[in-house]
Amino acid sequence: MGSDEFGAAVRQLRAGTDPAVVGLPVGSRRVTGLRREELGELAGMSADYVRRLEQGRSHPSAGVVRAIARALRVGRADYERLSALAGYAAADGQVPTELGPGGTRLLERFSDTPMIVTDAAMNLVAVNSGFLALEHWDLTGERWEWNVAWRHFCNPFAAFQQSAADATSHEAVLVAQLRAALLRYPADASLAALVDEMRTRSPRFDGLWRTPRPVELYESSATFTQSDGDSLTLVGNLIAIPGDDLAAVMLTAAPGSRDAARLVEVVGAAEGPAVVKVGQSGPG
């Protein structure tokens, strides 16, 4: 990786940035995105220097990388990518928790499919009404009640059951996600406290943390039991939302199955908005 790749990444991000998002007038523009002059002004550097960066003729400092990332208002993942292309480690920070446009669009466009969006630490950021209709996420009153990994290892849901094979796949993903988050955000005290709590409270998690299993599939099946005693089996697929360093889990049933028909009934009866933000205080 070198200056050419860094320059190409900056050029791509600049071209894909909506001027209105960074506080610039849209007006009549011959090209999409920002002009080099606009990026330079926002980042505190000359347009000529931006040109040299994009052409691979100058190597940026770590401070320049941060300035460009701030100017373009990119997400954590894009900032990390720019840093890596320039040969630096991304600056430590806090796990991003903003839903962002990518997660919002997913929830809105798949309103007929139960879905959640989590941050890098596996905390729920938002869900849709279809997910709430599954009726399995009870609240504990504890600090980590909205964390997917904590709930699985430390306070499992009674209405959520998996086979041994599916639980093994699910656990491998959860541990891998948390390990990756801790590497990216070593200064996040809340994330470190979560991992410490889970290692203390769950011997199974502690063992997997010390000797993690390789992730073979980013999906697993589970059976959800409804309050009326009926149940349905769904497959959860993990989908990355790179720009905001978030992830979505989409729950679907086998096509043409009894579960698929039941899912249509459950989601069809769901009420509420397409996007439900959640957190320590619950849905809101």
Rank of each mutant, 00 (worst) to 15 (best):
A133Q: 12
G33E: 00
P101R: 08
V50G: 11
D18A: 01
R51G: 13
P156H: 00
P96W: 02
T104G: 13
S163H: 06
V117E: 07
R151P: 06
R30H: 13
P114N: 08
A270W: 10
T200W: 14
D119Q: 00
F110I: 07
V195M: 03
G102D: 12
E135F: 05
I239P: 07
L53I: 01
R52N: 05
S3A: 15
A47Q: 10
S190F: 09
F110H: 13
R73S: 15
N237K: 11
G2R: 00
P273S: 05
S83N: 00
V31L: 15
T168Q: 14
L191V: 07
E135G: 12
P96V: 02
L132A: 12
L217G: 14
Q162F: 02
G243M: 07
L194V: 07
A15F: 10
A261E: 14
A121Y: 07
A193Y: 01
L13F: 06
F205S: 06
A20C: 12
T200E: 08
A86P: 06
M115Y: 02
N128T: 05
E5F: 08
A254N: 05
P96I: 02
L139K: 03
Y88M: 04
W146S: 06
E145M: 13
A180S: 14
D112F: 10
G23V: 05
Y79L: 09
D206E: 10
L53G: 03
E171V: 04
L134G: 02
T140A: 10
D230N: 15
R35S: 02
A90P: 04
S227D: 12
G100M: 00
H59Y: 05
